[in-house]
């Protein structure tokens, strides 16, 4: 809906991708692993291969979780836009269709040391 106003009201989006010097924001979240209090934010070049994100910055951040060492990326279930998603690890974020400020979720059924899952 339009903002109720005296004259036409147009906003300027603050977080557009061109403000990030050639990089983009990607959010990652491990379902049922709430040791990490909120989804994690990474700022990466769109040309970064997906597998490199997992092995590099994401792996470093996940270290603190007791399930991190048992994580088998080949068995992980992915969601993007809250729908099932099948990323190609060898291709880039851009080639996988992962856009600026997209939220990726991953699931590891059976792997949940800190959180009893109903």
């Amino acid at each position: 809906m339009a903002v109720t106003s005296l004259k036409e009201y147009i906003g300027v989006a603050r977080d557009r991708v061109e403000n990030y010097g050639g990089k983009q924001i990607v959010y990652l979240s491990w379902d049922h692993h709430l040791l990490f209090a909120a989804p994690l934010m990474l700022c990466l070049p769109p040309a970064t291969p997906f597998g490199e994100v997992l092995r590099g910055p994401l792996a470093a951040l996940l270290q603190a979780d007791p399930d991190a060492s048992a994580l088998d990326w080949s068995k992980v279930e992915w969601l993007k836009d809250n729908r099932p998603f099948a990323p190609d690890f060898s291709r880039s974020l851009a080639d996988n269709g992962i856009g600026h400020k997209d939220q990726l979720r991953f699931r590891t059924p059976g792997l949940n040391s800190l959180q009893a899952v109903a």
Binding site: A2, I25, M41
Partner: peptide, 19 residues
């Protein structure tokens, strides 16, 4: 969703740390 033109202008501190 009721007033998107207002909230798209938000200065979010975490993304701003990168931008």
């Amino acid at each position: 969703e009721h007033e998107p033109e207002k909230y798209i202008q938000a200065w979010l501190p975490m993304p701003a740390l990168f931008s």
